[in-house]
C-alpha cells in the first residue's frame, strides 16, 4: 500500500520538475536566475503561475468529483454532472453577448456565479420535495444539464456570428496564462476547498449509510447535502469561468485513487485525490504545450486522452 503512495509523491516531484520546462520555447537553465533573459521571464512570469493554476484546478476538480461520487452514492458522478458548467458558461457568454463584458472580467465571472447559484436553487427546491434523495438531485441536475447545454449551444451559435470563433474551447477546456495574482487566487481557492470538503469528510461517510441512519448519527442529510451543493457549485463556477469544462479529471482521479491506494477514510481519499488531480492536470497541460509546438491543444483533450485509458485500465484490473 505504501509503495503506491511513495510512487505518487515521486510522480508529483517529476511533474513539478518537468512541466515548467515543456512548451514551444526551450528554456536555458543557466539563464533562469537572470531576470533580463527571455528564459527567466517565460519561466517566472508565464510557466510558474500557470503551473500553480493547473495544480489548484486539478486538485479542486478531483476533490469535487470524489465528493459528488460519495454524496450522490454514484461512482459516475463528476463535477459537471449537475449542469453547473452549462449554467456558468451561459452566464459568461450572456455577459459577453448582452453586456459586452468578455470572459475573465469580474462582471462575467459574477454572471457565471449567479447562474450557478440560480441552478442550485432550482435543484434544491425541485429535488427537496418530497424525498430529497440524492438520486433525485442527480436526475434533476442531469436534465437541467441537457436543457442548459441546448441553450448554451444556441447562445454560442449567436456569439460565433457576432464575435467569431473560439467557442469550442469552452467545451474542451482551456487554460489561460494567469498573472501571479490570479495563480495565487487559485491556490487560495484550492486550499479553502480542501479544508472545507475535508472537514465535511466524516459527514459524507455517515451520509453514505443512508439518510435515516445518518440522522441517528447526528448528520442532517438534506441540509448537509444542500450546503455542500451550494459550496461546490460556487467553487465549480470559479473553475469553469477560468478554464471551461476540463473533462475526466473529476471522474477518473478519485476512482483511480480508490483503486490504487485503497484509502481507509474519506479524508484520506480527498487528500490523495487532491494531490493526484493536481499532478495529473499539470502534466496534461505540459503535454498539451509540448506535443506539437507552438500549437497548444485544449487541455481537456489531453485529460480525456490520458484519463480514458487510465480509467479503462482500472476497470480492467478491478473486474
Amino acid at each position: 500500500m505504501n509503495r503506491q503512495r511513495i510512487l505518487l509523491g515521486f510522480a508529483c516531484l517529476v511533474v513539478l520538475g518537468i512541466v515548467p520546462g515543456l512548451g514551444a520555447e526551450k528554456l536555458v537553465f543557466s539563464e533562469l536566475w537572470d531576470p533580463s533573459t527571455v528564459s527567466a521571464r517565460i519561466f517566472w512570469d508565464l510557466r510558474l503561475p500557470r503551473l500553480v493554476l493547473t495544480l489548484s484546478l486539478g486538485g479542486i476538480l478531483a476533490l469535487v468529483g470524489g465528493t459528488y461520487q460519495s454524496l450522490f452514492r454514484n461512482p459516475l458522478c463528476e463535477p459537471y454532472v449537475l449542469g453547473i458548467s452549462s449554467a456558468v458558461l451561459l452566464g459568461v457568454i450572456s455577459s459577453e453577448l448582452f453586456l459586452q463584458h468578455p470572459a475573465g472580467t469580474p462582471v462575467s465571472i459574477s454572471m457565471g456565479m449567479l447562474a450557478a447559484l440560480g441552478l442550485v436553487a432550482v435543484l434544491i427546491v425541485f429535488s427537496a420535495s418530497p424525498l430529497g434523495s440524492p438520486e433525485r438531485v442527480v436526475l434533476f441536475g442531469m436534465s437541467a444539464n441537457f436543457v442548459l447545454s441546448s441553450l448554451l449551444f444556441l447562445a454560442l451559435s449567436m456569439q460565433s456570428q457576432n464575435v467569431g470563433g473560439g467557442t469550442l474551447k469552452w467545451f474542451f477546456g482551456f487554460l489561460p496564462w494567469p498573472s501571479w495574482q490570479e495563480g495565487l487566487w487559485a491556490v487560495g481557492g484550492g486550499l479553502v476547498t480542501l479544508v472545507i470538503l475535508g472537514s465535511a469528510s466524516q459527514a459524507l461517510e455517515v451520509l453514505r449509510l443512508g439518510d435515516a441512519v445518518a440522522r441517528t448519527l447526528g448528520v442532517a442529510p438534506v441540509a448537509t447535502r444542500n450546503l455542500l451543493l451550494v459550496f461546490t457549485s460556487l467553487v465549480m463556477a470559479g473553475v469553469v469561468a477560468f478554464s471551461g469544462t476540463i473533462g475526466f479529471v473529476g471522474l477518473v482521479i478519485p476512482q483511480v485513487c480508490r483503486f490504487l491506494f485503497r484509502p481507509n477514510s474519506m479524508k484520506e481519499l480527498m487528500l490523495l485525490s487532491f494531490v493526484m488531480g493536481a499532478a495529473f492536470l499539470s502534466l496534461a497541460d505540459g503535454l498539451s504545450r509540448a506535443l506539437v509546438p507552438p500549437y497548444e491543444f485544449p487541455v481537456g483533450v489531453l485529460t480525456t486522452l490520458l484519463g480514458g485509458p487510465l480509467f479503462l485500465w482500472v476497470l480492467w484490473k478491478k473486474k
Binding site: E205, R208, L209, A214, L217, P221, R262, N264
Partner: peptide
C-alpha cells in the same frame, strides 16, 4: 433534529448501505 435523534436512538436498517472499501474499524468509527 438529527442532533437530538442521535442522542436517543440508534438504528439498524433492513438493508444497510455501506462503503465496500471501508474496514470494520472505519465503519464502527462512524
Amino acid at each position: 433534529s438529527a442532533g437530538n435523534l442521535s442522542k436517543h436512538i440508534a438504528y439498524l436498517p433492513q438493508e444497510p448501505l455501506y462503503e465496500s472499501t471501508q474496514t470494520v474499524q472505519d465503519h464502527w468509527r462512524l
